[in-house]
Amino acid sequence: MSIRLINIGFGSIVSVNRIVAIVSPESAPMKRLVQEAREAGTLIDATHGRRTRAVLIMDSDHIVLSAVQPETVAQRIFSKEEVTEEGQGKA
């Protein structure tokens, strides 16, 4: 099994194989989930100070915040272009 990595904005990269869900941060349950992760120390803020547009729920119980739209993250997952383990683009 190869490791597939995608860019979630501003040079931040996550493993596609570890993503459970990509959701919008607007609903009250998502806001509560983010707050609980912050308190538990399992929140990873990859927004670089920008507005949170996507919440990535990982299989390790970590929550990753991204400034990229959920649709854009999904498109990057399903595109042929990917970031390899060595960090180089591959078609």
Rank of each mutant, 00 (worst) to 15 (best):
I57M: 11
A54I: 01
V14S: 00
A91Y: 12
I3G: 02
A54T: 00
I22H: 00
T84G: 15
R76E: 05
L5A: 11
D59N: 08
E86C: 12
M30R: 05
D59Q: 07
V73N: 14
E36L: 11
R18H: 14
R53L: 12
F10E: 14
G87Y: 04
I8W: 08
E85I: 12
I57K: 13
I77G: 10
R18T: 13
M58C: 06
L65M: 09
A46W: 01
S2M: 11
A37M: 00
A21Y: 01
M1Q: 15
I57N: 09
Q35K: 14
H48N: 12
V34P: 12
R18A: 10
G89H: 15
L43A: 00
R50S: 11
I77E: 15
T52E: 11
I77N: 08
A40C: 05
V68T: 13
S15Y: 06
R32T: 01
R4I: 10
G89V: 12
S60V: 08
L5K: 14
R4K: 07
A40G: 03
A21S: 07
P70N: 12
A21L: 03
D45S: 02
G11S: 04
V83P: 15
Q69Y: 04
K31S: 03
T42H: 13
V16W: 02
E81Y: 12
G89M: 14
G49K: 10
T52L: 10
I77Y: 03
E82G: 12
V14L: 00
A28S: 13
S66H: 06
V68K: 05
I6D: 00
F10G: 08
A67G: 11
K90I: 06
